[in-house]
Each structure stands twice: as structure tokens, then as C-alpha cells.
Simulated scan of single mutants.
Amino acid sequence: MRYCLAMVADPHVPAAGGFPEALVAAALDAALALPAAVPVFAISGLQGSGKSTLAAQMAALASRRGRTAAVLSIDDFYLGKAARQRLARDVHPLLATRGPPGTHDVGFACATLDALKQGVAAALPRFDKLADDTAPRASWPVVAGAADLVIIEGWLLGTPAEDEAALAAPVNALERDEDADGRWRRYCNDALRRAYPALWRRFDALWFLQPPGFEAVSQWRWQQEQQLAREQPGKPAMDYAQVQRFIGFFERVSRQALRTLPGIADRTIPLDAQRNALLQ
């Protein structure tokens, strides 16, 4: 578990930096009520929307109830730097950058979830974002026995591929200037169509944290990078201009998620620009 957040007594007041306790409890109750022996509860949302925070809050509440939750992120399954450099050489230079479809080890993610669902001892991979590479295996936490619940979070979870015709026009300057022939975005979309549905099928439930629009991602992602730098001082972090370019890699699939996930997810939680959950 990455974060341990204190809960507050009033269930309508969010914990510092987190979601209202009532929402956390509702999510955990929904997850534990799923019929699978070890259910997989997926939290989807664009960058900076609070997915890892909600996952950590759910795991902390589960622990207080005497239950065990294994927490994973799609980010934990990024291909390592060397593998992405091979893709950059063989397919397209933009594939050196982690994050878009085609830069995850989806087979490993499926195998990890399968092991956890079967109660088999499993090491939970971790990715060092500041080093931009897989963390040393010795640092991976190990689930020795059966967990009561698996929580996986990620920015594109559950998102379907686009129609081929939608790929013709670039959505931003990155695609226009660095993917003029559309080869990179076609590769990513093909990966999303071919590889990722096997992972989506392993989810027993999917909740979507819905931002007010893609424009909110820019500020949220910058806040996220600053937090990473505070947690690991001395390691290189992106500056603001680099963050703005970085989010360009995610814009196409993020907009596809905004269009499609409210109709796919089991529950959609709208967020305002400050990431407050707009609960009815």
C-alpha cells in the first residue's frame, strides 16, 4: 500500500487529501459483496483524479475491519526502460515514453491477478516513476496467502479502443508534430483493442472517477509530479513544461475514456475541479 491516510469521524467530510469516508465505505462494501472468492475491484480515472488515494483508503478501512486487500496499479506493469527503448527503435520513437496502451506488460498483469484470485503467493510489482524503470524485485511486497480483495487502479482501465477512422486527425500538437503519419497512435489503439480486454475481463467491478473534463488533468498531473518529487527528493522530476508535453501522450485515450466509461463502469463518481466527489 502506497499511502496510509487518516480517516475522520464525520462520514460526510473528506479525509485530508482523500475521499469522504462514506464513499470509501460504500466502495469497500460493494467490493466485498462481489460473488468472487477473491474479487478484483478496479478504479479507473484520468491522471491525478485520486485513484491511488481511494485504493489506499479502501485498503486501510479493510485492514481496520480485519480484512486484507492487495493493492495494485496499472502503472506497476509498465514495461521497463530497456523494453520501451526497443519499441522506440523498432516501432516508433514515442513508445519510449511510459503510459499509453502498448507500454504495459498486460500478460504479467493478468497472471498477477490470476495468482491473487487463486490465493497463490504473489509478489506485487512496483514501478519507480522517477527512475522511469521497474523497481528492484527485492522491493516488491509479497502477498503470502489469500487476500480478501484485490484493488487495481489505473488511468485507462476499462477503456475500449477507438474506431480506426477516429485516428486520422491528430488531437494535439504532440500527435501533429511527432506522429504525423499516425503510426504511434495506431499502434497504441491496436494494443488497446487486442491486448487489454483480457485484463478488463478479470475485473469483477469497475468504478470510474469522472473529472469535469480533460483540461483538469494538466493541473492534477503537475500536482502529482510535485508530490513524487517530495516523496523522493534528490531524484530527477519533470518540470512544468515537461509535464504539459507528457500529458499529450494520454489525451487521445483519456478523451475516449471520458466518452465511454460512464456507460461501461458499474458506478461513476463525478469530481469537481478540486477533485471533490460530487455525491448525490
Rank of each mutant, 00 (worst) to 15 (best):
A42D: 07
Y78V: 00
A96F: 02
S49K: 08
A195H: 06
Q85Y: 06
I74L: 15
D105C: 03
R275I: 15
R202V: 04
R194A: 03
G154E: 02
F41N: 03
C4W: 03
I43A: 04
Q224P: 08
L5Y: 02
F250E: 10
P11Y: 01
A121H: 04
L130G: 01
A123M: 05
R98D: 03
W222Y: 13
L113E: 02
V142E: 12
A144R: 08
K51R: 13
S44M: 09
L46S: 15
R252D: 05
A123C: 08
A166E: 14
C4T: 13
C4A: 12
H104C: 02
A82C: 07
Y187F: 12
G80M: 09
R98K: 11
C4I: 08
P93N: 04
L271Y: 12
D29P: 10
V120Y: 10
L5D: 09
S63W: 03
P233N: 12
L46T: 14
Q85E: 12
A191P: 01
Q47A: 05
G17H: 13
W220V: 10
E175V: 02
G102Q: 06
A27T: 03
R275Q: 11
S139R: 09
S139M: 15
P270E: 04
S52C: 15
L124H: 00
A161I: 08
Q219K: 14
F249A: 11
R193I: 07
L116N: 00
A277D: 09
R185A: 02
L94S: 11
M7V: 10
L261Y: 05
L174K: 04
V91K: 08
A169T: 15
H92N: 04
M58A: 00
T159G: 02
A42V: 08
Q118S: 11
S254Y: 15
P233T: 10
Q232G: 05
A241N: 13
P14M: 00
Y196T: 07
A195V: 10
V143L: 08
L149A: 00
P20G: 03
A135Q: 12
V24N: 03
A111N: 11
A62L: 03
R194I: 06
Q224C: 06
D132I: 02
N189H: 00
A237S: 15
Q274M: 09
W200I: 07
